[in-house]
């Protein structure tokens, strides 16, 4: 299948509803990120890589499964960039274009305890599976 990085980056930008070009590269998103150490690519890198059209590596990276969508980056960004929306758009793009499946219903009984609230499972499926 033909894959055009620039075109995909544009799609991601449109889907995110935010303008990554407003970024001034201060890094406050990554400074705020509670998942920083779990990520191969960090929030500020997501933003600048999408601007550059360098998205293939992002789409392939496990980093997209580590964002907690806690919105600390969105809240603190001085430029109104909303990095979480960009990361989400990358994640949604993998689900739509590649049909990735990071969580299968078959896995669930083994990995959760009986106290896990429904909202955790619904959220995880919404984030991890098309």
């Amino acid at each position: 299948m033909h894959f055009d990085q620039k075109e995909t980056a544009n799609l991601i930008t449109r889907m995110s509803g935010t303008d990554p070009k407003k970024c001034m590269k201060c890094g406050k998103c990554s400074a705020s990120c509670p998942s920083f150490d779990e990520m191969e690519y960090h929030p500020h890198q997501f933003v600048s890589m999408v601007v550059k059209g360098d998205v293939e590596r992002l789409l392939a990276s496990k980093s997209i499964t580590k964002c907690l969508t806690c919105f600390a980056c969105v809240q603190r960004c001085p430029r109104g960039v909303e990095p979480a929306n960009i990361i989400e758009a990358v994640r949604v793009t993998t689900l739509r274009q590649q049909g990735t499946c990071y969580l299968s219903p078959d896995d669930v009984p083994a990995i959760v305890d009986d106290q896990i609230p429904q909202q955790a499972l619904v959220s995880a499926f919404r984030k991890y599976r098309k």
């Binding site: 590269k25 201060c26 890094g27 406050k28 990554s30 400074a31 705020s32």
Partner: peptide
């Protein structure tokens, strides 16, 4: 340090600065 600070908080009697070093790509 090239990078911004995300949070400053008090813990164990001192201040903690959580920031980013963009050159080292480290929190």
């Amino acid at each position: 340090i090239k990078g911004q600070v995300g949070k400053v908080y008090e813990e164990d009697g001192h201040l903690v600065v959580q920031g980013v070093d963009l050159i080292a790509n480290e929190q």
